[in-house]
Simulated scan of single mutants.
Amino acid sequence: MKKKQNNNYTGSTVISVLLHAALIGGLLWGADFTSVTHQPKGQSIEAVVIDPNVVNEQARKIRQQREEAQRQESDRLRRLEQQAELLEKQREQEEKRLRELRAEKLAAEKAARDAEVERKRIAEAKQKAADEQRKAEAAARVAQEKAAAAEAERVRRVEEQRKAEQAAKQAEAERQKALAEQRKAEEERQRKLAEKQRAEEEARQAEEERQRKLAEKKKAEEEARKAEEARKEAERKAAEAKRKQAEQEAALNELFSGLESESATRDTARGRYISDEVSRYGSIYTQMIRQNLLVDNSFLGQECVVKMRLSGTGLLLDVTEVGGNKSLCRATKAAVLKVSSFPMPDDKDVAAQLQSIELTVKPE
């Protein structure tokens, strides 16, 4: 930056020297340097005198105007660099947020894997309970077969009735035991089924959480993309400002080509500078509003025109809807109120025009 300023000062010095030379040359051109001829005695001799105070006053005014233009351009470039640094810090914060979201996503995926392992364990337990139930049913069938055999033996052998009855009682006891085991197996099956349902619910909740984190990640990536675009836009505007500075220096060179057109040319360059600054600050304001705008899919392709009144320090005094999509305008006014304070230039003429400004907001 200092190197650029030194180059500007060197160029300005050369311009100043050339201007002085042109001014003195113009004054000398109008002077009469013809040879002095002998006049008859008693006649007066006319002479042309160059007033150095006039020359110095004109040179001082031109030098002050040039220094003022250079100071304003230096201030504007410094503000552009500060804005670029701010956007770079915002981009770094978004990158940090993305890293945190990635860590949360990995944790959610681990929880989903753990839930899957638990689900498999419950399925295996359910299979084991089913096997036990089949064994109990087989045992019940065996017990029934034994009871039938005992009853047949009782009929066939009356003399062995007591023994048969005892065998029947034993078979009944085994049947009751089998039934008790069957009930126990059913209760275990119901318990495993409840555990399975609980595990499936936890897995579903984990999947919903993963989807939410994924949506947040996509949103953060979109915000980071917009911040990067804003940074590139600021760099483009800085390059545009440098180009305009070169154009203004060319305009100053053209200004120095003749003292008679100096005032008109200066007014034209000043007016163009003020217009460019108002447009540039309007773009900055629009970008600040977009960064705080809650965008809905229905806003795409729509636009809203709002009018803002600002104080001399950039504090928002009022915002009104001029035209456009009603829903978008409500969201735009909310975003303007959220910003509440906007940067203002040091140039009083530019700041005066920015105190009442209309902006067109189009969601990207």
Rank of each mutant, 00 (worst) to 15 (best):
D276G: 12
A180P: 02
A115C: 04
A147S: 12
F299L: 06
A234I: 00
N292Y: 06
R60Q: 10
E240S: 06
A31D: 06
L255H: 03
A139V: 01
E358V: 04
T37N: 11
Q355P: 05
A84D: 03
Q127D: 12
N6S: 14
L255F: 00
R63L: 08
L337C: 01
L294E: 15
I122Y: 07
R191Q: 14
V361M: 03
E85P: 03
Q302G: 04
A152I: 07
L106K: 10
L316V: 01
T313K: 13
Q287S: 14
R198E: 13
S35L: 09
N8H: 08
A21S: 15
K244P: 07
L98E: 15
E303F: 05
E207N: 07
A139K: 12
Y281L: 09
A180E: 11
A129F: 00
Q287P: 04
K213P: 02
K192T: 14
G26M: 04
K169H: 14
E249K: 02
L28V: 00
E124N: 10
E247D: 10
I122F: 08
Q291R: 10
A203Q: 13
A206F: 04
A269I: 00
E57V: 00
A143M: 03
E165T: 11
E118F: 00
A173F: 13
E132Q: 14
K2G: 06
E68P: 02
A47D: 05
F299D: 15
R113G: 05
E208H: 04
D347H: 02
Y281I: 02
V322H: 03
D296S: 15
A180S: 10
E57G: 01
L317N: 09
E358C: 01
I284Y: 10
G314D: 00
E160W: 07
Y281A: 04
D318S: 11
L294T: 13
T13E: 15
Q64Y: 00
R330C: 02
S12I: 05
K89L: 11
S341T: 05
A168F: 11
A178M: 09
F299A: 05
A269M: 12
E233K: 12
E85N: 07
E321S: 12
R113F: 08
R210V: 02
A178Y: 11
V54F: 10
K105D: 12
D276H: 05
N7L: 14
V14L: 14
V322F: 01
K3Q: 15
I122S: 04
D51H: 03
D318R: 06
R113K: 06
A230S: 10
D114C: 01
F342E: 01
K232F: 03
V158S: 14
E229Y: 04
L179V: 14
E153P: 00
E254Q: 04
A173E: 15
D276L: 02
K96T: 12
A148S: 15
R243T: 03
V336K: 00
E67M: 02
Q39A: 06
V54A: 10
E181M: 13
L294M: 12
F33L: 15
R113H: 10
K219G: 13
A230Y: 03
A130K: 09
K196I: 04
R113T: 08
L354P: 01
K237W: 09
A115P: 01
Q90N: 09
L328K: 00
P343W: 00
L86R: 11
T332Q: 01
S263E: 13
E165Y: 08
E46G: 06
V350G: 03
K120M: 09
V305M: 05
E364F: 07
L359G: 05
L101C: 03
